[in-house]
Structures are given as C-alpha cells and as structure tokens.
C-alpha cells in the first residue's frame, strides 16, 4: 500500500463573524420570514379567547372576586392568555418544528456537514424558540394594550417575563421533540396541554381549588408562567415574582441540559 503523506498546513485560526448557534437562529428566522402567518396566528388565537371569554364572559362577571382590589375580568385573563401565547409559540418552534426537522427534513443534515455540532443545533433551536415565544407573547401584549386591557406600567416587565416563559417551554419542548415518535403522539401532547391551559388558573384564581388540588396546580409550568406575567400586569411587583422566576429558570435550564444531550445523541452517528 502506498503511503501518501499530505502535508497540509493546519487550518488558519479563522475568526467567526457569526456564532454557530446564532447561525442556526438566523436560518430559522429567515424561514419564519416566509411563514410570518404562523406568527400572526400565534397572536390571533389568544385574541379570540380574550374577546370571547375575557370581554364576552367578563361582561357577566364584572370584576374577579377574591382579589384585594377590583380587577376587570379581561385584565385578569389577559396575562394568562399571553402566557399561553408564549407557551404555544415556543412549543410550535420546538415540539413541532424540531420534531419535523428530526423526522423528515434535511435541515440538520445540512447543518452538520458544516462546522456546526449537534450542541450548536440544540442551542440555536432553544434560541429560536425563546425568540418566537417572546415575539408571540409580546405581540399579544401589544394587542392587549391597544384594547385597553393593560393598566399598570409594570406590564412592561411582561416582555422579559415572556422570555423566561419561552426559555422554560423551549427546554420542555425540545426534550419532547426528541421523544415524539409520530403524529399520533401529538394527541398525547395535546392531552397534557389542554387541561393545563384550562386549569392552571387561566380563568380563575387558585383559591377556587381545595388544598390538595392547589398543590397539584402549583406544580404546573403554565401556573408559574401565568403568575410571572399576571402579577406585574396587575401592578403587583415584589417578592411574589421570586418563586415563578426561580421555577421557570430551573425548568428551562434542566430542559436545556437534557435537550442538548438528547439531540446530541440523536444527531451524532
């Protein structure tokens, strides 16, 4: 066997103008630009809930009983719907889009033929999902402001709040994407998401539930997501935000850690 020794100079240390994860986010945003209607629908859905339940049902309810002060029902429900918008935006970007790319598309194959590593892909997808959650949540916040549903200037804290909600659900969604086997599995996912949306204090306060159920609801990520958005929107800013912040950050980090590992195993060959 002939031995061909090729003396090729080691690769010049070339400075990246774009970080690997940012390159992945950039690609996803470019695709989203062609599919901006998905984002619009992400904002439209909670608007429909806000109109039908917040405003419509709210007419019959007036203010929410059990709170320290008088709060119009739409003002109370609005931030919860914003949490839903951020959650859905994030989950669409992960559980759905990432699942499709893992299962059918060649997006990841393209990426991994370049210097990108699976961990860069995972980071990029988390980044995209957080961005989408924040955009859809923020978009809905703007609609609420236009409708005159938001009153406190503290509601501006809901933008970083949506980012944190997005981070928590990005981790959850990405891990989920690596476990989904096929389309029927999405029904199982829906079976978890729908009850969570209905019962995680979206439409009424926690005090409605008996003690043990309260403890159960407190475990839900959407419950903390609603809290972190609703409290500032109602002008209640203080130590009450610590628990949801810690909870969401912890869930996000744990999800991120696991998702990177799962995607790395899935994409390495």
């Amino acid at each position: 066997m002939t031995l061909t020794l090729t003396a090729v100079a080691p690769a010049p240390a070339h400075r990246r103008h774009v970080g690997p994860a940012a390159a992945v986010v950039g690609r996803n945003l470019l695709v989203l630009r062609h599919e901006w209607t998905t984002l619009a629908f992400g904002v439209l859905e909670p608007v429909l809930y806000l109109l039908s339940i917040g405003v419509g049902v709210g007419r019959m309810i007036g203010t929410v009983p059990g709170l320290d002060r008088q709060v119009a029902y739409a003002t109370y429900v609005g931030p919860a719907l914003m949490a839903m918008a951020a959650m859905n935006g994030t989950l669409n970007a992960t559980a759905q889009s990432v699942f499709m790319r893992l299962r059918f598309g060649n997006t990841y194959r393209i990426m991994l033929a370049t210097p990108l590593r699976p961990v860069d892909v995972a980071r990029g997808e988390i980044g995209t999902a957080v961005l989408r959650g924040t955009i859809e949540g923020g978009g809905f916040l703007a609609v609420m402001a236009v409708f005159g549903v938001v009153h406190s200037p503290w509601a501006l804290l809901d933008v970083p709040g949506a980012l944190l909600v997005g981070f928590a659900f990005a981790g959850i969604g990405l891990v989920t994407a690596t476990y989904l086997r096929d389309w029927p599995d999405f029904q199982l996912l829906e079976l978890v998401l729908l009850p969570m949306f209905l019962f995680a204090t979206t439409f009424y306060p926690l005090s409605v539930y008996p003690g043990p159920v309260q403890a159960l609801v407190r475990c839900l990520p959407l419950y903390h997501s609603i809290n972190i958005l609703r409290e500032p929107a109602l002008g209640q800013v203080g130590t009450n935000l610590i628990a949801p912040t810690v909870y969401l950050a912890a869930v996000g980090l744990a999800g991120f850690w696991l998702a990177v590992r799962r995607l790395d195993a899935r994409l390495s060959d």
């Binding site: 990246r16 774009v18 390159a23 950039g26």
Partner: peptide, 13 residues
C-alpha cells in the same frame, strides 16, 4: 447566506 453563516462567514464575503 444561511450556509455561509454556518461557516461563520460575514455577510459581505
């Protein structure tokens, strides 16, 4: 554009 960015290349290049 997307592919070049994966290599970390700048927009102008």
């Amino acid at each position: 554009l997307v592919y070049g960015r994966y290599f970390g290349l700048g927009k102008r290049v």
